[in-house]
Design a protein around this nucleic acid. Sequence first.
DNA 1: GCATTTCGTTGAGAAAGTCAATGATTGAAT
DNA 2: ATTCAATCATTGACTTTCTCAACGAAATGC
Lengths: 144, 144
Amino acid sequence: MDTRSRLDDDPSFLLARANAVSVQAGNAALAAHGLRVRSYAVLALSAAADAPTQRELADHLRLDPSQVVALVDDLEARGLVTREPDPSDRRTRVVRITRAGRPALEAAERDLRAAESPLHDRLTPSQRAALPGILRALAFPVEP
Amino acid sequence: MDTRSRLDDDPSFLLARANAVSVQAGNAALAAHGLRVRSYAVLALSAAADAPTQRELADHLRLDPSQVVALVDDLEARGLVTREPDPSDRRTRVVRITRAGRPALEAAERDLRAAESPLHDRLTPSQRAALPGILRALAFPVEP
DNA sequence: GCATTTCGTTGAGAAAGTCAATGATTGAAT
DNA sequence: ATTCAATCATTGACTTTCTCAACGAAATGC
């Protein structure tokens, strides 16, 4: 019969396990900054030139809007982001990184990259080059 | 500044989002079989020629042993797998798929593949060929 | 104007992840 | 041989994450 499990050839299973490895390493690296991969992602997106609304954060991170509320609550309470009213649409709240949030983001980013690189070092250069394109196709199935 | 977020170039974020897409599609496809991606993975591994112990399931799926207990409890209650004693080590319990479990696994596998294929169809042939090797390197950082 | 939709928020519950402790059993070290 | 430490499955508690329904405020469509 099959001595090796078919599951080991299933991209979805491999994807899930690779993500579990990545998330665990990421959370460990971010713990020193009081962040997790989720809150880090929100903080990173809020640093964009055109700051996102909570709805845009939810869509981009594939989170429920109620999850974004909790994440922004936490970051706002720590002074890392602000909720700004949008003059053009008073329903929405724009989440923007604060002056204090920037250095926190950069420090977290450094530690995060340091934790990720040993994982990616196991890839060949061509694999490393192909990875982002592949993942983008899988992560955004219907054109963001 | 950067009009496009740096997060969109972060393989870890893309991995997380791609996994979220995959898990959601997988769970939707498996719902008709009363399974989720987790329980499906346990069922699939228990179909191997040499049935795994619960510890081996936990290691392979990167789950806490207590999670495996609950998953096997459920599958066993539904008659899809059995817990067999291992004569060579009476501490361990070997999880083996049952005669009733096999057709259930195969039916679930068909629906799961059908749900995954449209996602993978977005990849070029060379990307599709490269994906398993890349994910294996990321999913098993220290040689399974 | 009026109905419908969207946004953020609250709240509740299911699913998943994490950790400590325990009894039974094994393997190792004398 | 007998103790000692380690392993396995299990239970239980706790946190985090996911999912869904409802609601007030505001925008959009007609």
